[in-house]
Amino acid sequence: MKMLRDVVLVAVGGAIGTALRAGITLALGDDVGSALVPLINVVGAFAIGILFGWRSRMSASSRAQHVQLFVGTGVLGGFTTYSALAVEAAEPGLLWWGIGSVVLGTGAAWGGLVLGRGGRRQR
């Protein structure tokens, strides 16, 4: 039963994150263009970093784990999208978008971890 609950948390969160990304893409896609996917991925990576940094400061409670599954794996996993990044990076002349997004996303995730941990080292 626990595994089913966890799967439902991730699925519902993923649906919310995917819908959020689709809404932003529909609203801003024409104005922002091909920069939108890397921007979404970097913002998502930063938010995931914050969440996992915050989570590292919490006890191993089931509530904190549920938040991590729902928000981190579900919402933010659905919000960010490697597949769209890969498709855009495959376009001629846009490989640098993919490389830049991965580099910036990694930096954003690291910054989010530091912020989420409150500047503390991981235990």
Rank of each mutant, 00 (worst) to 15 (best):
G100W: 09
G74Y: 02
V37C: 09
Q122C: 03
L113E: 03
V71S: 05
S83G: 11
A19M: 11
Q65T: 07
L51A: 04
V87P: 03
T25P: 03
G44S: 04
H66A: 14
T73E: 11
G53F: 01
Q65K: 02
R63A: 09
V37A: 07
I50L: 14
V102Y: 08
T81N: 12
R55M: 00
D30S: 12
T80P: 07
G53I: 05
G14M: 10
G17T: 01
H66M: 12
S62I: 00
W97E: 00
L36G: 11
T80Q: 11
G33E: 06
D31Q: 08
A47W: 07
F79L: 09
L94A: 15
A109C: 14
G119N: 07
L94Y: 06
G112F: 02
G107L: 15
Q65Y: 00
V12L: 15
D6E: 11
G111S: 09
L104H: 10
H66D: 15
R21W: 08
G23F: 09
G23H: 02
S101E: 08
F46K: 06
L115I: 15
N41S: 09
W54H: 13
G100D: 13
L20E: 08
A90H: 12
A45P: 00
L26F: 08
G119W: 00
A15F: 12
T73K: 11
S83M: 07
L85W: 00
L95Y: 09
A108V: 03
L39Q: 12
A89F: 08
A89N: 11
A60R: 05
D31E: 11
V102Q: 10
L4V: 15
G116M: 04
L104A: 14
F79D: 04
L26E: 14
A47S: 12
E91L: 15
G116F: 11
T80S: 06
T81Y: 05
G17V: 04
V114Q: 04
A86E: 08
V114S: 02
L4H: 09
A86P: 01
A89Y: 10
G112M: 06
D6W: 02
F79R: 01
L26Y: 12
T73D: 14
G33Q: 10
Q122K: 01
G29Q: 09
V32T: 10
R123F: 07
S83Q: 03
